[in-house]
């Protein structure tokens, strides 16, 4: 393997993880924007995405089909899991997150952490053999029998990973268009800047908060599905770390800024991927190194890469 292809492979692996982190981080930023709350249960919503999509794969009998039916069912599984988990996100927002968001910050911190633990333990207790690691099947291999991956300039690309990258890029573009070009997107931005002023324009704030939690949770669910596909295994507590990483990515990018969240997610993943490859025994320390970068950001640029500086807020 040439050094160029090693470098490309690192970038590609980083992009795989980066797209997942970004999709989680976007939720943190959206929620912080409209409710001024940091939802620490968001990582467990990501986990729910993985479990709901695995359940749907089994229920629909996806793996026993082929051809056009297979493609149709696969798309259905992805969209349905996003809708179900998006709905659950709205449900949790209404019963826990919004009621505590008006109280002191400490209260919402404890309440959302507690909600996360409750979701996690519910999956462990009520999902069949929920405390064990579950195998998440490979999906695109079915369409290209006999070949698991393609080679491109000396780097190995699994079909499933290409699916992750393609879907991720499409979703990020759609999200940017939605936020920037639609009336709902405009309203979400307005509520994030001044919720009371927005309600003085006739905006039903509660509706916008619901929409925001639906979108954020659906994106986290998609990330959960991708994570299952990437590692081919899922477990009930996978959301704990993912939540912290997603939150860190949102902070690096500038909490409240969704483009910042996307950049932050990719940056975090690239640091992980580079340190795993370039530092001896780096894969053991990659997360430590990535969090060290987070800490450096907190010290030297606390408002994040794309976050507004203090003078702009005045």
């Amino acid at each position: 393997m040439s050094s160029t292809s090693i470098f490309l492979q690192i970038i590609f692996n980083g992009a795989m993880l980066g797209i997942q982190y970004s999709l989680i981080a976007v939720g943190f930023s959206l929620f912080f924007g409209v409710l001024d709350v940091i939802n620490f249960a968001h990582g467990d919503i990501f986990m729910l995405g993985a479990f709901v999509s695995l359940t749907l794969i089994n229920v629909t009998g996806l793996l026993n089909t082929s051809g056009a039916t297979y493609v149709f069912l696969l798309i259905l599984v992805i969209i349905l899991s996003m809708i179900i988990v998006g709905g659950l996100g709205v449900f949790f927002e209404r019963i826990v997150v919004k009621p505590v968001s008006k109280g002191p910050t400490l209260m919402s911190l404890v309440a959302t952490l507690g909600l996360g633990i409750a979701i996690r333990e519910a999956v462990r207790l009520f999902y069949p053999r929920g405390s064990e690691t579950k195998r998440f099947p490979e999906l695109l291999v079915k369409l290209f029998p006999g070949k698991e991956a393609i080679e491109f300039k000396g780097i190995i690309l699994r079909y499933d990973n290409l699916l992750i990258l393609a879907v991720g890029i499409i979703v990020v573009i759609l999200l940017a268009l939605y936020i920037n070009k639609t009336k709902m997107g405009l309203t979400i931005r307005a509520v994030a800047q001044d919720a009371e002023a927005a309600s003085m324009m006739g905006v039903n704030k509660n509706l916008i908060i619901d929409v925001t939690f639906f979108i954020g949770s659906a994106l986290a669910a998609l990330a959960g599905f991708m994570n299952g596909l990437y590692y081919n295994s899922i477990i009930f507590d996978m959301g704990a770390m993912a939540g912290i990483v997603g939150f860190s990515a949102a902070v690096i990018g500038g909490l409240g800024n969704i483009y910042g969240a996307i950049v932050g997610g990719f940056l975090f993943a690239m640091v992980e991927s580079l340190s795993a490859a370039l530092i001896p025994r780096g894969s053991e320390f990659m997360t430590v190194i990535a969090f060290a970068v987070v800490i450096l950001f907190l010290v030297f640029r606390p408002s994040g890469i794309l976050g507004e500086r203090a003078y702009e807020r005045v």
Binding site: R189, A190, Q193, A198, M200
Partner: peptide, 8 residues
């Protein structure tokens, strides 16, 4: 006051 949406 200036309750316009400053970033829009």
């Amino acid at each position: 006051g200036k309750r316009i949406f400053p970033k829009l």
